[in-house]
Amino acid sequence: MPHDHHHDGHEHTEPPSDIELRVKALESLLVEKGLVNPDTLNTIIETYEHKVGPRNGAHVVAKAWADPEFKQALMADATEAVASLGYCGRQGEHLKVVENTDDTHNLVVCTLCSCYPWTVLGLPPAWYKSAPYRSRAVSAPREVLGEFGTDLDGDKKIRVWDSTSEMRYLVLPQRPLGTEGWSEEDLQALVSRNSMIGVELARTPGQDTEALK
């Protein structure tokens, strides 16, 4: 031990990793210069860790299934329609909703980096940010869907939407059969994050959500 002349061995704190020091250095300088406010940072982290998530998107989808007027507004101007539910973007980006139909299935990717509809889905999962997904969603979408356990009819068309910093996409999955008369709240439980990215379908009634992990 380099500090064995101290009987308690607690005379210093182990410095963190290089990457943590880089963040600390940058953050403390920017705060000192008044360019960022520590309270703002905490609010942002709190928001993204606890308040923004795929439940927002599930709310939007379930409402679109249950309320034809809302659906019409959503398809016409998704940015506006989701804002009416209280979900507003921070980056001034536009949101477009793409609807799955009997003929067409939609899949969302960001080939450049990882643009993602944060306001309705929270932060993207790791696989969405991975190079294999970013390239293969475009080159082999049917294969990628198969890896997620989503096997589509051979004649169903797949449309791939490449997100940008200005335009983000949310998939409106097809409403599962056997849900006629369901409340919006019950419908929400069928809407998984993955179904709104387009790698899966909405859950069907009775499907154990735990089993889908």
């Binding site: 960022v36 982290i45 993204y48 929270g122 999962p125 997904y133 998984s192 994050r193 889908l212």
Partner: peptide, 29 residues
């Protein structure tokens, strides 16, 4: 589906506090 893919059905979020700090700095700036 891919190696290292975390099982995060309901979304990530951060694997370490520094990731959250770096994320928030960009949004704040």
């Amino acid at each position: 589906k891919f190696p290292h893919q975390p099982q995060d059905e309901e979304g990530p979020v951060f694997n370490a506090p520094w990731e959250a700090q770096a994320f928030a700095l960009v949004l704040a700036l």
